[in-house]
Design a protein around this nucleic acid. Sequence first.
DNA 1: ATTAAATAACTAACCGGTCAGTTATTTAAA
DNA 2: TTTAAATAACTGACCGGTTAGTTATTTAAT
Lengths: 232, 232
Amino acid sequence: MLTSDEQNTAQRARTDLAKDQRRMSLLMAALDEFFEKGFSAARMQDIAKRVHLSKGTLYLYFDSKQALFKALIEEVALPTLTTTLQQSIGDQPAPAALKALMQNVTRVIRHSPLPRIVKVIIADGKAFPDLVSFYRTQVLDRVFTLIDSLLQKGVQQGHWYCLDTALSARLVVAPILFSVIWRMVFEADEYGLPDQQAKLDLDALLQLHTNNLLLILATKPELGSQPEAHHV
Amino acid sequence: MLTSDEQNTAQRARTDLAKDQRRMSLLMAALDEFFEKGFSAARMQDIAKRVHLSKGTLYLYFDSKQALFKALIEEVALPTLTTTLQQSIGDQPAPAALKALMQNVTRVIRHSPLPRIVKVIIADGKAFPDLVSFYRTQVLDRVFTLIDSLLQKGVQQGHWYCLDTALSARLVVAPILFSVIWRMVFEADEYGLPDQQAKLDLDALLQLHTNNLLLILATKPELGSQPEAHHV
DNA sequence: ATTAAATAACTAACCGGTCAGTTATTTAAA
DNA sequence: TTTAAATAACTGACCGGTTAGTTATTTAAT
C-alpha cells in the first residue's frame, strides 16, 4: 500500500557525508522560512517539512532555533563569501578588476543564498547582536577591505584618483545593497511575478554604476572646487 | 500615597484632539517595538506599556496588530514623505536643488521615523504584500519620480547630461538606502553606542556621493566609448 | 449620577522543545 | 546466505509557556 514516497518515515542519513548533506538541506530550508516569515514567525515544523522530515529530526541536527540562525551565518554566509572573494582577486589592472568584480556580484546576487541571508540579518539581527558583529567583521569588512585595496591599487597604478578609498568603497557597495534589497522586498514574492512595475534591471543598473565609477575615478579632483563651504 | 504619576489608571483622552494624540503616541510606540523586535515578536502589551497604557486600551484605538502595521505606513510614513517632498521642490537651478535635496535627506535620516519604518517594511513586509505595494507606489515611486524630474530638468537647463534618468534616479537613492540600513542594523543598538568601528560618517558619505553625482552629470558621455560590447 | 475611557482577568490558540516509541539499516552469528 | 539482535535515525504526541484578542468591571471626568 505504501510506496517509498508515501511512507511516513524518511530514508536515514547514516554516513557522515549524508548527515552533512542533511544538515545543509535543513539549513537552506531554515533560510527559506526565515526569509519568508522572519525568524520569530518561522515554525520549526515547517522548516523540517520542507525537506520531508519531522520536527524531532530537526532537533537531532540543531539544538535550537537560534542555533539555526547562527549556523546560517557561520556555515553558509561566511563560506559563500570566502569563495566569492577568492574568485575576485586576480592580478588584472584595476579598472578591469573592478569590471570583473561587478560581474561576479551580479552572479552572486542572482544565484547565491547571500542576498536572502542579508535580508534575514537586516530583519532579525537585533535579536542576535553578537552574530551581527561577527557578520560585520567577517563578511562586510572583508568586502570593504577588498574594494578599498582595489581602489588603492588603481591609484598606485596611475589609473585613478581617489582621496578617500574607505569611504568610496561604501559608495561602490551601495547600489549592490540597493539591488539586493529591492529584489528581496519587491520581487521575491513566491512565484507569481510581482507587480510588473516593480521589476529592476539588475544588469543595466550595475553596468551604469560601474561606468559612473570608472568615470569618477578617472577624473582628477580639483581641490577646493566646491563653491559652497563644506565641513571636512 | 499615590502621586498622579503612580496611579494605576491613566488620564483619559476625552477630546478628539487628545484621542488623536493618544493614537499617534501608540503608533510611535508600535514603531519602536516593531523596529526592535520585528512584527511577530513584538508584544501588544509592550507597545501599550511604552505609553503607560494597558493592552486593552490599545485595542480601543486599533482593531488588531496588523492594523497597527497598516496605520504606520498610511498615517506616519506617507504624511512624513509628503511633507518632505513638498520641502524639496523649489525652483532653484538643478545642481543647487540636488544639493538641497541631499541636505533634506540627511535631516530625514537623522530625525524622522522614516528610516525605522523602512527597516520594518524590509523586515516584515512579506506578511503584508498589499501594504508593500502601497508603500512602493505611494512612497518610493514618488521619490524616484521627483529625482527623475530633477535630473530631466538639469538636462533641459543645460547643466547636465543623463541618458537614463529613471535608472540614474535609483543610483541617486542607493547610498541613501545604504546609510539608512547601516544605521538601523549596526548603529541603533539601544543606547550603548555599538562597536566604535561600526560608525558611519553620514555627512561625509552623502557629501562625497553628491559631489560624484555632480561630476558624472556634468560630463558629456562619449557614446560607444566602452571597449567591451554591452547589451543595452 | 452618568458616561465612556481604561483596566486586568480571562480564553483559546499557537509553538519551541522533549522524549517514549517506531523502524530502517547494519552487522555479527548461525 | 540467512537471520535476528543491535543500533541510531526518525517520528509525533505532549507539555508548558506565551500572547493576540475579549470582556466584565473599575474609575476618571463632567
